[in-house]
């Protein structure tokens, strides 16, 4: 059996590492102060795809990521770990997309690719924690979805059996292909980079990254297919511009407020009822708990 597998992966600011300089004095997010990383659960998704390829070596694993040109880093990282190729979907028209507009753009690109058997997504992206894009893509494609997958117990041309982790336990479900699967963080961790693959793909680029490259590199690039990462813009996918970006996004951000963390000037409290109660109220107000 050879499967045509696609992984949807997103480059995200590392919100787990939010330091004190991550917020501007105006209360907006200082994205440049945060490292951009491979969304953690998308690595779990990639691993599931690579495990299927281990089982069925004639399968192909491609990565699709929508974001700025630097999101090509995501495709390179996936190549280092075992993916066969990838596409960066990048266009100004996508800026300001909410999850619905994102899923529209991604599903348009997926339709253009065609012939996919399984799509793996992460459960959610840590910049928004919404967990919406996967199911929204599945709906737009008219596909089935299995969310919170932890392992694939069985797969053949007839059916796929998946263990999924739900609120109160686990569920084993069976369905047929094609299917979109969102992978939970409790699934197997992604394998590390493979040194040989890092050598091979170190210079893989999207066309937009070539601007300052020298001629030697360009001729190397042109002669080696595997260095060419796909780059698509709006014109490359068949889609309605009104459904993209801000205009295609039903949700709008009306207001953002910084949750102010005091510097490490600690507050000292006693174990009295009133001290403990006011602490709990403060933590609830800050949305730290509750």
């Amino acid at each position: 059996m050879n499967l045509n597998i696609l992984v949807l992966a997103k480059q995200v600011p590392d919100t787990r590492n939010v330091g004190k300089d991550a917020m501007t004095p105006e209360g907006t997010v200082n994205r440049s102060a945060l490292p951009a990383i491979f969304n953690p659960e998308d690595l779990n998704a990639l691993e599931q795809a690579l495990q299927l390829k281990d089982r069925y070596p004639l399968s192909t694993v491609n990565v699709l990521t929508m974001g700025p040109f630097r999101a090509a880093e995501i495709v390179r990282e996936a190549l280092y770990r075992g993916a066969d190729g990838g596409i960066v979907l990048s266009d100004r028209a996508f800026a300001g997309s909410d999850t619905l507009a994102t899923s529209y753009a991604l599903s348009s690109a997926i339709r253009k690719m065609g012939n996919i058997d399984i799509i793996f997504c992460g459960r959610q992206a840590i910049d928004g924690d919404t967990a919406q894009v996967g199911p929204q893509v599945a709906e737009k494609l008219g596909w089935k979805q299995i969310t919170y997958a932890e392992t694939i117990d069985q797969i053949d041309s007839e059916k796929i059996v998946i263990k999924r982790r739900i609120d109160k336990g686990v569920e084993h479900v069976s369905t047929s292909l094609p299917v979109l699967i969102t992978v939970n963080g409790s699934a197997a961790e992604c394998r590390p980079r493979n040194a040989k693959r890092v050598m091979k793909y170190k210079y893989a680029r999207i066309p937009n990254e070539l601007q300052n490259s020298n001629e030697d590199y360009i001729s190397l690039y042109n002669s080696r297919d595997f260095l060419q990462i796909g780059e698509w813009c709006v014109r490359d996918i068949d889609c309605d511009l009104n459904e993209l970006g801000l205009s295609g996004s039903p949700t709008k951000v009306k207001k953002v407020e910084n949750v102010v963390f005091q510097a490490k000037e600690s507050k000292t409290l006693s174990s009295s009822d009133s001290d403990i109660e006011s602490l709990m109220i403060e933590l609830i107000r800050q949305h730290t708990i509750g």
Binding site: D129, Q132, T147, D167, S249
Partner: peptide, 25 residues
């Protein structure tokens, strides 16, 4: 915002083209 609501909500919002906000406090 349970494993059911977060599986179902985005699917319905995508079909109806309506906005969905997860995990409101």
């Amino acid at each position: 915002a349970t494993s059911i609501g977060r599986d179902l909500g985005p699917r319905v919002s995508s079909a109806l083209h309506s906005g969905l906000t997860a995990d409101c406090t």
